[in-house]
Nucleic acid binder design. Structure first.
Lengths: 330, 330
DNA sequence: CTGAAAGCGCTTACAG
DNA sequence: CTGAAAGCGCTTACAG
């Protein structure tokens, strides 16, 4: 264990602990040769500053918290990576907490986290705004993938891309579309549904809505039967996981994408590319979402004025969409 | 910010700070009615113990570090979740670090982490043992998915399941098998290759080995051509991601699983189930791996004697394996 | 540029 | 069961 402290080094070198401390925390305040002596000695002794002591003295932990609703949902790993890397560049570590898809647990988890970090990134939270706001009171916080009154947010707006996707479908001769809705408590799910609904209204295209669903792969599979009964041949799923489920469930019924039906996902997570055929979807700038979250959090922490950030998804056409089958065409 | 300390509460209640401290850290030492008063007051004031101060006083941070090579590889999210949950049950938080598939960076990351945690879980590390051992010197550490001399480990042995998978293939009439090897620096990849190689030797079955590969989806895709040229109809991929890549790459060449060729993955990550058809693979007890790691770490930290843990994968037959095509049968 | 000293907010023997 | 006091290892005005 680290018995070595700034005092050991100071004693060894016949200087004061203050100087040793400065050599680590504000090196420019220490004469170059002294600084080097200190570093050499520190190296020799295997010294590492004690984080807790530093944290107690400065009031900053050098740690931020990241809350995700479900790390096993493929949307989050790339987000976690982006956040972690951006944080690392600022020399802050990240405490990860997985809410286990349990929105009700979020406020408690947030409160726990809040006690040990300098700031919080809350990704796609499911809990009610009021509970969340109360839980984050006093901690610098930025929200990802949702807007909460009074908190800076970085969101991905998929409205345009979703409209484009829907146009892509009708352009291929699909007359009737289906929308598989995501979880009722998901902000993104609400936004996406609204975007598609408005588009259908404006275009006068028939749209059947299914859900809300928890948005697991199995939900997509299970929706297959109703889907074929509905007669819709163009399907917009809440996310890629559901889309993959739909493709799988449909295949079991002998209905194949893109030959018989076209399926569009949303987010463009890993499994969208690993499917065969690959999934047509809306690509989210996940990396940017993460980096921007850290950027904003940095601004909040340093007291700068912050503006929420709005990024956009873009349509990526791949293999699960194509011309509507003859019998359904106009 | 948390201006409230044990002193505020003590003053408010006319008792000593020691008592307030005890009420939180060792409640059984405080008389019930006093304890309740303290808790009530703490609640009213919104008090939360300062982690840094506690950490400095006790020498324990209440945080462990978790290093993964690549959080975007679908094997790790479930592992991270398991570790985080098991840790949470012991009231310790987890600092997540992603090495970004860069084995060379691991020792530095480990050293950084080591400075701020009570213990370390290192999952599937890629760096050389010597460098790793030096980096973890002085920190309680447990390794997952690899053995390193002198460090407690929890591993998943897939030897038996892989042999079973190979038998499954020849049982379906596949005469010639191919093995797609994983990364050269991956311990698991080495073990898996060895298991299959030995099996082929013993059974006298023709085996063509390809790789090593970085084991990305694209590596699997790219291997498709060589694979068909090899004439092998039974394919054992290092992991599910590569297996999915192979299925995709082969499909582009008009070769389909399971009709023309059988493909087996390893690990049973999410995308193994979301593929259509679903992937035959070796299911790893990922959740157990994570929980056991925390269990062992707990033992190491409390100075108990620890024994490394060996779990086993089991073959899960799904849709990508079946009878060899006629023309290839004996 | 450097040192002495106080302070960060807890925990924990030690006495009572 | 409770209190007074020292100590954990840093940082940072304040003087020089």
């Amino acid at each position: 264990m680290s018995r070595v402290t700034i005092y050991s080094i100071a004693r060894e070198l016949g200087i004061s602990a203050s100087t040793v401390s400065r050599a680590f925390s504000r090196p420019e305040l220490v004469r170059a040769d002294v600084r080097e002596q200190i570093m050499t000695e520190a190296d020799r002794l295997g010294y590492t500053p004690n984080r807790a002591a530093r944290g107690l003295a400065t009031g900053r932990a050098g740690i931020i918290g990241l809350l995700v609703p479900d790390i096993t949902n493929p949307f989050f790993p790339p987000l976690v990576r982006a956040v972690e890397q951006a944080a690392g560049e600022r020399d802050v570590a990240v405490l990860l907490v997985d809410a286990g898809s349990n929105g009700a647990a979020e406020p408690r988890l947030v409160r726990q986290l809040a006690a040990q970090v300098d700031g919080l990134v809350i990704a796609s939270p499911r809990a009610p705004s009021a509970a969340l706001k109360e839980a984050v009171a006093g901690v610098r916080t930025v929200v990802v993938n949702r807007t909460i009154q009074g908190l800076p947010a970085v969101i991905c707006d998929n409205t345009g891309a979703l409209r484009e996707a829907a146009d892509h479908l009708v352009g291929h001769g699909h007359k009737k579309l289906a929308l598989l809705r995501g979880p009722a408590t998901s902000w993104a799910a609400g936004r996406r549904a609204q975007a598609v609904r408005r588009w259908a209204d404006e275009r006068g295209v028939e749209l059947v809505e299914l859900g809300p669903f928890e948005a697991q792969f199995e939900d997509g599979q299970a929706a297959a039967r109703v889907l074929v009964e509905s007669g819709a041949t163009g399907i917009l799923a809440f996310d890629d996981l559901m889309a993959a489920g739909v493709v799988s469930g449909l295949a079991e019924l002998g209905v194949h994408a893109p030959a018989d039906v076209s399926v569009v996902g949303c987010d463009d997570v890993l499994l969208a590319r690993t499917m065969t055929p690959a999934l047509t979807t809306v690509t989210a700038p996940i990396d940017q979402l993460g980096r921007q979250a850290i950027e904003l959090l940095g601004q909040v922490v340093s007291g700068e004025p912050v503006r929420s950030v709005r990024l956009e998804g873009v349509l990526t056409v791949r293999g699960t969409t194509g011309p509507a089958p003859r019998r359904h065409r106009g």
